[in-house]
């Protein structure tokens, strides 16, 4: 009898470890891009608010591009553009750069909304109490405006976490890519995709529920 070689082997417990590692990579790239992107986005939001028409003509259209082109196209484009200008970035770095800019472009409009949520009399009152412009921003606008748009920011952050799955197109082995690799080997797509989906869900659902409850609480 001819010996047969099987290319496929079933789902083994150690594959869970593989998926877990990939899940950590998903979280790592998300946390990195969300935190840098948020800082950048807040700065952009402030520029949009203070820049008036000058910002509307310069910063706004640029940020708008990142919201109007599919993330996957942005990723492929940047990954192939970097070598042209002499940068050799690995998939992770390219992913972080694009996800960060993408986050920033989304956070910018959220942050701007937050600044607008603090009405002028409040800010004038702060200034007439002797606060400097920056003190007014730090001690009045940040707590009040930040609270107003915090749920929206959580929505953006969770969106970016989910969209980080797209970095797999560059070959970065995050959760979804890892499950794809396992599917190819084990031929058990339903089981493995369920595990991957459960992880995303377990991460996203509680946070979104928490943000929603905060929104309700603060609305009162």
């Amino acid at each position: 009898m001819e010996p047969t070689i099987s290319f496929f082997s079933g789902f083994a417990p150690k594959d869970l470890l593989f998926l877990g590692e990939a899940a950590l990579r998903t979280m790592w790239i998300s946390i990195l891009s969300i935190s840098i992107g948020t800082v950048l986005g807040v700065v952009f939001g402030w520029v949009l608010y203070e820049g008036k028409w000058a910002a509307a003509l310069t910063v706004a259209p640029i940020l708008d591009v990142f919201r109007s082109v599919p993330l996957i196209i942005q990723l492929v484009l940047f990954y192939n553009f970097a070598p042209i200008i002499g940068l050799n970035l690995d998939p992770f770095a390219s992913g972080v750069v694009i996800l960060t800019i993408y986050t920033a472009s989304l956070v910018a409009s959220v942050a701007r909304g937050g600044i607008e949520a603090v009405d002028a009399p409040m800010r004038r009152a702060a200034r007439s109490l002797g606060m400097s412009y920056w003190q007014d921003l730090r001690y009045v606008v940040l707590p009040i405006g930040g609270r107003a748009v915090f749920p929206a920011w959580v929505g953006v952050a969770l969106g970016v976490m989910k969209d980080s799955a797209l970095v797999s197109v560059l070959g970065y082995v995050e959760l979804l890519k890892a499950s794809q690799i396992l599917i190819t080997r084990t031929q058990e797509p339903f089981l493995i995709l369920s595990i991957a989906g459960a992880f995303y869900f377990a991460l996203s659902y509680p946070i979104s529920r928490y943000a929603a409850s905060l929104e309700r609480k603060w609305a009162q």
Partner: peptide
């Protein structure tokens, strides 16, 4: 609460 790509994969491979 799951990535759109995951949903697509689910309909595609799952």
């Amino acid at each position: 609460n799951t990535p759109a790509l995951f949903q697509l994969f689910f309909f595609g491979f799952g």
